[in-house]
Nucleic acid binder design. Structure first.
Length: 957
DNA sequence: TTGCGTGATTCTCCTTTGCCAGCT
DNA sequence: AAGCTGGCTTTGGAGAATCACGCA
């Protein structure tokens, strides 16, 4: 079983290793669709639209041991029909679109789970048919226990990973599409045509800095606004429309800003957070409905931003903000202050309640969009009546927030029927929305951010050669007029519950992962990202394209380079360091390591310090790689212990596994809850002697085991172990573990005089090439041992693995190990043997064919004889026989020139009228006399004839 | 709200060198 | 008679991973 897994893994890795981006995506999508189709049947049973709930409960009243007392109205049939339709729709979705399938599924499950909001009796009034349906659910005391969700199986995880990968590829494709649109000459020219003349000079600035970009960004932000509604059309035409109306989705406005920067000859990237489906099964369950609903309507990227007006609300601009303040809007949620520019975008952008109500309804409506074909009635009912407690709480939050901030509530439309319940809910609400807060708190209320709305998803990066002496990619969010706010992105995204797992910069139809620039807590997202090898393979071709588009040479001024590198380093440290971050990993040489890894990755990496001595020119790309690598190595120490469990940089002893040890035990980088923090590089994995042997290493003499583990002994094996010590330990029930520093290369005995050194079992363990005794070779050929035996050459069976069957391990052999000098002789003999075997096999095959032909012909003859004797009695049988004969004539007799796949025999069968009329056909036995047979030299066919006129053609072998 | 500790549950890894009947 | 093939009583325990819950 493990072997199968490994072969599967190796196949996958081989496919991914050799495949192009297209292959990778094709493979991932194909797998996904296969899985979706396969699991579709299984899961569809559980997938019911929320509107199916009643029907479901009706049909299975005892389900989950809940006592359901249902008075079913006359609409039961309608409900059942709805269920059927829903199921059919789900099946279609599963075949057509894996993602929507999953989302719909999750969505429906979420709805199901929402029934868990209320405990105890739940009266549900059904207004559809005028009949009341009352369902009382009495939960048993241990129902909470049972609610524990089933843990994700391996299959679920694989499916989630496939969805994740496919989604990533889709998002990358989308990003490239937008990036291409940003390069459109017409759009760029149009943008330039509306740009004030004084801003055109920015393209001539020699040393571009954030300050130069400030007026441009302000102008853009005041002239373009974001709306949430989008029309289904191609992105390019949508972009044109947005340009025309100065209004568009966040995606479009961000693209326009990038196009504008590019039109001004600024090296610009479009940066996007790839808000991808979770890698872990059902992790998105709770927020799938809103998120996916927005995705469904707005394309793959959802569009929203925290600081912009919604819907068709009057755009917020610096020019108009004062007016708006005068009518009561609050000061704003999100203003960033640039370190360099002290830029403040102090605008009033509190989200109007009507807007949010719209969003709520939109969300619900859109979530149902997938379903609305199924049942209009169900849909209507849902959208009108299924306001959940979360929605009510949210509305109350808004109401309280607005009253607190004196926003006119005229536009707020909270249903009067909900007011009572709202007041109850409101008692529990202590937070207010839109409260003013300092910038450090990111100015985003978590109450608002509790939804995924409002997360920054798009921005631009402009290369400013005047920044940091060596140049710098500058974060510019033109939608919100934020410059150099890269440190804030993570916090804002976190506040909006948008995981910052992938931040990708697009340029020149390529892409580059720049997540490191925006993410300080890498350890938190590392586990949520896809396998880095796969990700690197996907991005590799795109990275080249991106480098070609944005790469440029950076002249490092010798006078300043040293100081600039120091400055950079300090800058990184200051940005990434926290109060607890007083140490760097002691054995990590920042420059050396980052340079090394940067070089590995790009092949062009240059160390700033070394470059100050030997190079004056570095590429932008290499400098950026170095910056990102430096960030990777200078993460602040996490403040919670559990983060150290799988942290890539740091470790605390408490969270080491039993096979891990700290060596050397130091330096201590800091403390977390009193536990000393060590560099992860100090963590060494321990293995038994036997395990090291498999890697071609052996323990040095006189080395003591670092650790001894107790070993559980199976009862039936105690006896065995009493007689023979376990291979990894020197005493019963103990496993001795050694570290890598206690090892040396494996020294195996040499093969002498053609004798292969064998182990106690008379074989050689070949875990890898390193495990072969010097002077020997491993011949992995089937039955090669017989050749060696025949030649009387010493050999040893090569044991390559263990197979676990029936509770026992059995060795798996593959080929033999022989002395190298016999290799050629054995291979030669093996080839001869193989030829001989093939010849024998061929002969056997031909004989078999002849035998089968003989059987066939005999049966035909017998049949013919019977036909001749009894044929008159049955005209039907006669017709049949005639039919058969005619076919045979064509296939056998008449088909002399036809190709015969067997190629060994070809026969013609001719039942003619007897030449000699005296011959009795009834008891006649065919006799083929030699003088009557003829030989066709061209076709090598012998025609044998009987006196009765019967002839057979046989191919001469 | 976040983090920690604990307990419950589930999953994964590790284990490790036949034997025999029937068929060719 | 020798060699090959395939089926057997298809483990079970430890530890890792994950989740829920209470508490601070």
């Amino acid at each position: 079983m493990r072997g199968q897994k490994e072969s599967k893994r190796s196949k996958e890795s081989a496919a991914s290793a050799s495949g192009t981006l297209g292959d990778l995506s094709e493979e991932a999508v194909a797998k996904l669709v296969r899985r979706a189709n396969r699991s579709g049947k299984k899961k569809c049973e559980n997938q019911l639209h929320p509107c199916d709930l009643i029907g479901k409960q009706e049909s299975r009243p005892q389900r989950d041991k809940k006592d359901v007392d249902a008075t079913v109205g006359s609409n039961a049939l309608e409900t059942q029909a709805c269920s059927r339709d829903a199921l059919q729709k789900v099946s279609r979705d599963a075949k057509g679109d894996g993602e929507s399938f999953q989302c719909s599924f999750t969505n429906s499950r979420e709805e199901l789970n929402d029934s868990d909001w209320e405990d105890g009796p739940v009266p549900i009034s059904n207004s559809m048919g005028g009949h009341e349906v009352t369902i009382e659910i009495n939960e048993t005391p241990d129902s909470r226990r049972r609610k524990r969700s089933r843990r994700a199986s391996v299959e679920d995880k694989e499916l989630a990973e496939l969805v994740h990968k496919a989604h990533l590829l889709c998002l990358i494709a989308r990003g490239r599409l937008i990036d291409r649109a940003c390069d459109d000459a017409l759009i760029q020219a149009s943008l330039l045509s509306v740009l004030p003349e004084h801003l055109l000079h920015i393209s001539k600035v020699a040393k571009l800095t954030a300050k130069h970009l400030l007026p441009l960004v302000f102008w853009f932000q005041s002239n373009f606004r974001v709306r949430t509604t989008s029309v289904r059309r191609s992105f390019h035409s949508a972009l044109n429309f947005a340009l025309e109306t100065h209004e568009g989705t966040q995606e479009e406005i961000a693209a326009l800003s990038v196009a504008l920067f590019r039109a001004l000859n600024l090296t610009t990237r479009l940066v996007s957070i790839l808000n991808v489906a979770s890698l872990k099964p059902e992790a998105d369950k709770t927020d799938c409905s809103s998120e996916d609903a927005s995705r469904l309507s707005k394309g793959i990227f959802s569009t929203s931003t925290p600081m912009v007006a919604r819907r068709n609300e009057v755009p917020v601009s610096p020019a108009t903000s004062s007016e708006r303040n005068s009518v009561g809007e609050t000061p704003q949620i999100g203003s960033y202050k640039s370190e360099d520019c002290h830029l403040t975008s102090s605008e009033t952008r509190c989200k109007g309640s009507d807007v949010y109500e719209l969003n709520d309804k939109m969300t619900d409506t859109l979530a149902c969009e997938e379903w609305n074909d199924m049942s209009e009635a169900c849909h209507t009912k849902k959208s009108q009546e299924s306001k959940r407690r979360g929605d009510l709480e949210f509305e109350m939050q808004l109401q309280m927030a607005l009253s607190a901030t004196a926003v006119p509530t005229a536009g707020i439309k909270i249903g009067s029927d909900n007011k009572d319940s709202n007041s109850n809910v409101a008692k529990r609400l202590k937070r207010t929305v839109c409260e003013e807060s300092p910038i450090s708190s990111q100015s985003i209320s978590t109450a608002v951010g509790s939804r995924k709305e409002g997360s920054p998803l798009y921005w631009a990066e402009v290369y400013c050669n005047g920044e940091n002496l060596t140049g710098k990619w500058l974060h510019i969010d033109a939608i919100n007029a934020i410059i150099d706010g890269e440190q804030k992105v993570e916090a804002v995204a976190a506040a909006c519950k948008t995981p910052l797992r992938y931040v990708v910069a697009f340029a020149g139809n390529g892409a580059k992962d720049v997540t490191r620039r925006y993410c300080l807590k890498w350890y938190q997202i590392a586990s949520q990202r896809v396998n880095p090898i796969w990700w690197d393979k996907v991005l590799a071709p795109l990275r080249d394209l991106e480098v070609r588009a944005t790469g440029g040479m950076v002249h490092l001024d010798k006078e300043h380079t040293g100081s600039s590198s120091e400055h950079n380093k300090e800058n990184f440290l200051n940005k990434s360091g926290s109060a607890e971050m007083n140490y760097l990993p002691g054995n990590v040489n920042l420059n050396a390591k980052s340079s090394l890894e940067g070089s590995k990755e790009t092949g062009k990496g240059l160390d700033v310090e070394s470059s100050s001595r030997s190079f004056e020119i570095a590429t932008r790309n290499s400098l950026e790689d170095m910056e990102l690598e430096t960030r990777a190595l200078t993460e602040p120490l996490p403040t919670n212990q559990q983060a150290y469990k799988n942290h890539h940089l740091y470790a605390i002893e408490k969270w080491l596994t039993k096979h891990q040890v700290l060596h050397p035990k130091g330096p201590i980088l800091g403390f977390c809850s009193g536990h000393p923090v060590y560099p992860r590089t100090c963590v060494q994995t321990l293995k038994t002697k036997h395990k090291w042997l498999r890697e071609g290493l052996q323990v040095k003499p006189n080395e003591r085991p670092v650790k001894e583990l107790k070993r559980s002994i199976k009862p039936q094996k105690v006896q065995v172990l009493e007689d023979d010590d376990y291979v990894g330990g020197n005493s019963i029930g103990t496993i001795e573990l050694y570290g890598k520093w206690q090892l040396e290369p494996l020294h195996l005995p040499h093969a002498i005089n053609g004798k292969v050194p064998k182990n106690d079992h008379g074989n050689v363990e070949v875990w890898s090439e390193k495990c072969l005794p010097p002077g020997t070779v491993h011949l992995r050929l089937p039955r090669v041992f017989s050749v060696a035996k025949r030649l009387e050459i010493d050999y040893a069976p090569a044991m390559v693995d263990f197979e676990f069957k029936n509770g026992q391990s059995y060795p798996v052999f593959d080929g033999i190990v022989v002395c190298a000098e016999f290799k050629d002789a054995i291979l030669e003999a093996y080839a001869e043997e193989r030829d001989r075997r093939e010849a024998v096999e061929k002969k056997r095959y031909e004989m078999q064919a002849i035998s089968r032909w003989y059987q066939l012909l005999s049966s035909i003859v017998t049949r013919q004889r019977i036909q001749n004797r009894y044929g008159e009695s049955s005209s039907t049988a006669s017709a049949e026989t005639e039919n058969v004969n005619s076919k045979l004539d064509v296939q056998l007799g008449g088909g002399q020139n036809d190709e015969e796949p067997l190629g060994c025999q070809q026969g013609g069968l001719h039942e003619n009228t007897p030449d000699d009329p005296t011959i009795e056909l009834d008891n006649h036995e065919h006799v083929f006399l030699t003088e009557n047979q003829s030989f066709d030299e061209d076709n090598l066919l012998v025609t044998k004839r009987c006196l009765c006129g019967f002839s057979v053609q046989v191919e001469e072998l």
